[in-house]
Design a binder for these strands. Structure first.
Length: 487
DNA sequence: TGTTATT
């Protein structure tokens, strides 16, 4: 190692040749007995701003251990990987190198890039930030703009930090600004300066947060974002799916559908039963056992013969009538037959007051299932050999009169649970629970859109005032965008 | 009361 001074490395082709000719013994000794000065032999940590370097024009007979000494001259190496063909394992003549310190990378790049030629190569070594690091180099993404701001407005905001090659406001098909833009400078340094000065520096009128200024996504990042969006639309980020993956979640939906079919009489299932079924599955799968997601509601509808204490934790039909002006419960604790839903649709067929209602059946059914086959929730996906078709939820809002605002949702409800709860009333084209971006916690309100106003009205009639725990759902038409302006 | 958006 003593021969590998900076002077020699900076020098001639011959100097580098010495390195490669002698590396084997040298590196072995170094790696096992030596650490760079001041760096104890610990798991390497890299700086947050470390740069991944691309190393090109490497002779194919040099592997990592041969290369390491050459680059260790400039600092502690975090990772060094020679690129190899995925199938043949053949050396591709290049490598990726990350130093623990950003400074080391800059030093190495300055000292080595195009400065010498390794033995057997006819072009000089390449040492430069990997493509993956370039992050569009000079191109910025600007977010949280006012939607009224024009290209010129944005230019004015950014022009003092460098020369702007390109400035584009992102617009929807209708030409309306999406509140963000791309700004491309002629150099990375200018872009960096703009980030430092402008990111978070101000909040545009009407924007929900302060100005965002960052390097634009690379293609790779964009792909990842797309996938995440897709995943979100599939609902695989709900807690149920976190446990089993999207595939398992699909299986659960199937399971629930089967459950509903078996419970619903005449093809209809009460919303409460649907809700309960969804909720029970949710809890059963999350906790491993049926929990008590919903606190007891006033009254109590446990029919004779069903005495499991947890049964009372399911919302009873009676709890539905809280704010809906429905007839009061009868002495036996059952709602009057046909009385619960006043929307003209018989979700809830008349039945004997003494018979266990679909809700109870659903609940006890799931309870028994979960208790008897604790592993089945995980295995059931094997019954579905192909993944479900992906139907992205593009449409956010339905027509006027079809969109509901729902408040006082249980904290643990996500988009999926919200949809499950409103599915019995019609075709739900979207469901959205608002989530605090910082904490990822539900804000306990959301939106559901149907494809027709009748379903929305039916849902309001049945679900407004629906009691869950200590709270009652508030279900009403979503306020139109420009309504209720005091001016 | 439909959110932070990536040509």
């Amino acid at each position: 190692m003593a021969t590998l001074t900076n002077g020699q490395v900076d020098g001639t082709v011959h100097g580098v040749g010495v390195v490669s000719a002698s590396t084997n013994g040298l590196v072995n000794g170094l790696n096992h007995s030596h650490s760079p000065a001041g760096c104890p032999a610990t798991i390497p940590m890299k700086d947050h701003d470390a740069i991944k370097l691309f190393i090109g024009q490497i002779p194919r007979n040099l592997d990592e251990k041969d290369l390491r000494p050459l680059f260790e001259e400039f600092g502690k190496i975090y990772e060094l990987t020679v690129l190899k063909d995925r199938f043949t394992g053949m050396h591709k003549g290049c490598a990726f190198l990350t130093y623990c310190a950003r400074e080391s990378a800059l030093k190495a790049q300055n000292a080595l890039h195009e400065q010498k030629t390794l033995p057997g190569m006819n072009r000089p070594i390449q040492v430069k930030p990997a493509d993956s690091e370039s992050r569009g180099d000079r191109k910025l993404f600007v977010g949280m703009l006012n939607k009224q701001q024009s290209e010129d407005d944005v230019r004015r905001l950014f022009e003092s930090f460098g020369s702007i090659e390109e400035c584009t406001i992102l617009r929807g098909p209708d030409g309306n600004s999406k509140g963000c833009a791309f700004v491309k400078y002629s150099s990375h340094a200018e872009a960096q300066a703009a980030i430092g000065a402008l990111h978070g520096s101000q909040t545009m009128p009407g924007a929900s947060s302060s100005l965002v200024v960052k390097f634009a996504d690379t293609d790779k990042e964009r792909t990842i974002r797309r996938m995440q969006q897709m995943a979100g639309q599939m609902g695989i980020f709900n807690p149920m799916a976190l446990q089993f993956g999207a595939y398992g979640a699909y299986a659960q939906v199937q399971q629930q559908a089967a459950l509903m079919a078996s419970v619903g009489q005449g093809g209809y299932l009460s919303p409460m039963a649907a809700f309960a079924a969804a909720q029970m599955q949710h809890m059963a799968t999350i906790n491993g056992l049926p929990g008590a997601p919903l606190t007891p509601t006033s009254g109590g509808s446990t029919p004779p013969g069903i005495s499991a204490p947890t049964v009372t934790s399911i919302p009873s039909p009676i709890s539905v009538n809280g704010f809906t002006g429905m007839p009061p419960p009868q002495a036996n604790g059952q709602p009057p037959a046909e009385a619960v839903f006043t929307n003209g649709i018989h979700h809830y067929p008349a039945q004997s007051p003494t018979a266990a209602d679909p809700l109870q059946q659903a609940y006890t059914g799931v309870q028994q299932y979960a208790a008897a086959y604790p592993a089945a929730y995980g295995q059931i996906s094997q019954a579905f050999p192909h993944p479900p078709p992906i139907i992205p939820q593009q449409q956010r809002e339905g027509p006027e009169g079809c969109n509901l605002f729902i408040y006082h949702l249980p904290q643990e409800f996500g988009d999926g649970e919200l949809m499950q709860m409103f599915l019995p009333f019609g075709n739900v084209i979207s469901s959205k629970v608002f989530v605090d971006r910082a904490t990822n916690q539900s804000k306990c309100f959301g939106f559901v859109s149907f494809d027709n106003p009748g379903s929305a009205q039916a849902a309001i009639q049945s679900m407004n005032g629906f009691q869950i725990g200590m709270k009652r759902l508030k279900v009403q038409l979503k306020r139109p965008k420009d309504a209720n302006r005091p001016y």
